[in-house]
Design a protein around this nucleic acid. Structure first.
Length: 573
RNA sequence: GCGCCCGUAGCUCAGUGGAUAAGAGCAACGGACUUCGGAUCCGUAGGUCGGGGGUUCGAAUCCUCCCGGGCGCGCCA
């Protein structure tokens, strides 16, 4: 997978202020040690993390262990060298060497309290960074063939692509979401769909009909046929039953299909910036132009009446056909022309999110792009694994006939947008996903999405209650945050301080399931705080104000993390 | 046959080469409300990280072989 992001050491925006400060201190110490000849001159990534136990400090760095080998010294010895060169800093309470060679930083409590302030000031921008420097990235996802409604099988790519786009936006990229409508004249499946629609239309008109052997025989095609007759009249029966006729019907049907898909995406909360028509590539002559260019590169040859691309020269197992004997172009051909079009629109990096059924074509598309002169680093292919629906531990076979869920729309109508998105996003994209319908329907503590949303509703409720009892909630920044010293308060603040780094990591790893886990974790941390720390207490107004600031900040971060997922943060439930 | 993905607690899954301590949720068991939302919290129990070998100061994580499961392998997309 191409590395889009630079190493974290060079990047400050995604860190809390304390985190960034420590990196500066460490960089200075390393530099000093190098100049003194105590450490070798080599590139290292300074990475700070939270130790497993707060007693070990607020931040921990493994740099001494990383440098042990090149320095030819024991890790703890390296740590000592770095420590001796570490500049003085007011934020540092104490620094110690621990375990095999970790450098642990204990910070003065004010830095955590500053985090609360930072969250309140930055609001929905908290956790965001500028590392992407506005570079233009495009994510193409779902892009199901326009031959029927979106299926549960396509469902995973939607929330994934959308949430990944949000993550990349959060770290400063300029991201566009795109859906490719495969309505090209040479798309065999699309023509087959057209022939199927025509057969249904003719049946309804009482004419002779020829449903193709491997045609689209689902009932929904009959619905399309009915709509088309209603919209266009009996004249549809006069369209010839030949290739041109099939395509004509495909285009007619496609308008209905795409409208339906758009509606489903809207229900899912996915908004595409561009719906790109493959047909336009053909109509604007982009395909033929691409073929000419490839001839010029010397990567094409004719064989068996077809036109082949020498992908084997670029790592593929066998050469691939670009133009079939019939003269029709293959998907690879249009993919290459389409990629040109994307780069011409100014994107520096292209991300393709594909279903598991497309996994096998990744190597040939990569090789094809290399043959066409595309920088391999500029494209990235992410293949997600399948989704199974389960209910009460049993796998639900998706079947129209049995009345079980088939379409994404039905799933959304059953469990709602928030549960659909949260469940689909909560697993690593590399893993198969079992979607437990029964659990997703539950409005109880067993359902993780309600657990997280409940935390937000509770926060809203506390703030409402506080206002009702005469506390102002619009001047939280003026609270005396130094009063926040309870272990559960510190834990909550520490969690929020780490959040920007977590977002940066999730974006770098293309892992929207991490914010899903983070949201659960933040909710739990908050609930725990709530259990031990009474927020509203008229007897202690100053402490109440400080805690209201902490609660408000938690609400901000919870909204932000749910925002990455596209899951709602309700004020009440 | 070849390729990709997975195998971690009863179930569903996190885990980015690091800490005498492999984590969540659900399920099970035992506790906690005169007060801010109990859709909550606290605790107990539950593991040969599929198995063998290797690399490393250090491996659930990297390499390799084997076992088990999923998906894919068209001049369809």
């Amino acid at each position: 997978m191409a590395r889009l992001l630079t190493p974290r050491a060079t990047f400050v925006g995604g860190r809390s202020m304390a985190d960034a400060q420590l990196v500066e201190l460490l960089t200075a110490a390393l530099e000093a040690a190098r100049q003194a000849g105590e450490l070798p001159d080599c590139d290292v990534e300074i990475r700070l993390e939270q130790p497993p136990d707060p007693k070990m400090g607020d931040f921990s760095c493994n740099i001494a262990m990383v440098l042990a080998k090149p320095a030819g010294r024991a890790p703890r010895e390296v740590a000592r060298i770095i420590l001796d060169r570490l500049p003085e800093c007011s934020v540092l309470d104490r620094v110690e060497i621990a375990g095999p060679g970790f450098i642990n930083f204990h910070l003065s409590p004010t830095w955590l309290q500053d985090t609360v302030r930072e969250v309140l000031v930055r609001g929905e921008q908290y956790g965001h960074s500028t590392e992407g420097e506005g570079r233009r990235v495009q994510i193409e996802f779902i892009s199901a063939n326009p031959v029927g409604p979106l299926h549960v099988g396509n469902a995973r790519g939607g929330p994934y692509g959308d949430a990944l786009a949000s993550l990349l936006e959060a770290v400063g990229y300029d991201v566009e979401r795109e859906y490719l409508v495969n309505d090209g004249p040479d798309n065999t499946q699309f023509r087959l769909f057209g022939a199927s629609v025509q057969a249904r239309v003719r049946e309804l008109l009482g004419l002779s009909a020829h449903m193709p052997e491997d045609g689209y025989k689902g009932d929904y095609v009959i619905e399309y046929a009915r709509r088309l007759i209603y919209d266009h009249g009996d004249g549809l029966g006069e369209i010839a039953e030949d290739e041109d006729g099939f395509y004509e019907f495909a285009i007619l049907g496609q308008e209905l299909v795409v409208a339906e898909i758009r509606e489903t995406c809207e229900m899912l909360g996915v908004e595409f910036d561009v719906w790109f028509s493959e047909r336009e590539l053909f109509e604007r002559g982009k395909i033929d132009a691409k073929i000419d260019e490839l001839w010029g590169r010397g990567v094409l040859y004719d064989k068996d009446g077809a036109l082949w691309l020498r992908t084997t020269d670029y790592g593929d197992e066998e050469d691939r056909v670009l133009v079939r004997q019939s003269g029709a172009k293959t998907y690879l051909m249009t993919d290459l022309a389409y990629a040109d079009n994307k780069f011409a629109r100014g994107f520096e990096h292209l991300i393709y999110v594909w279903g598991p059924d497309h996994a096998a074509q990744v190597p040939s598309v990569k090789a094809g792009m290399a043959a066409a002169g595309v920088d391999p680093e500029a494209t990235e292919f992410i293949v997600h694994q399948i989704v199974r629906l389960t209910e009460g531990g049993e796998v639900v076979r998706m079947s129209k006939r049995r009345g079980t869920i088939v379409t994404l729309r039905e799933l959304l109508e059953d469990v709602g947008r928030d549960a659909t998105r949260f469940f689909l996003l909560s697993r690593s994209i590399d893993s198969h996903l079992d979607f437990d319908l029964e659990l997703a329907r539950k409005e109880s503590d067993e359902n993780p999405v309600y657990y997280v949303q409940y935390a937000h509703a509770r926060i809203s409720s506390i703030l409402r209650e506080a206002r009702g009892r005469g506390f102002a909630t619009d001047d939280l920044l003026e609270a005396d945050l130094s009063l926040l010293a309870h272990p559960d308060e510190l834990r909550l603040m520490r969690w929020m301080a780490d959040y920007p780094a977590q977002v940066a990591d999730a974006a770098e790893q293309r892992a929207p399931h991490r914010p899903a886990h983070l949201s659960r974790d933040l909710a739990a941390t908050f609930h725990q705080f709530y259990g031990t720390c009474r927020v509203i207490d008229e007897e202690a107004p100053e402490l109440s104000r400080a805690r209201l600031a902490l609660v408000g900040a938690t609400g901000v971060v919870l909204r932000n993390v749910l925002g990455l997922l596209g899951v709602g943060a309700p004020e009440q439930m």
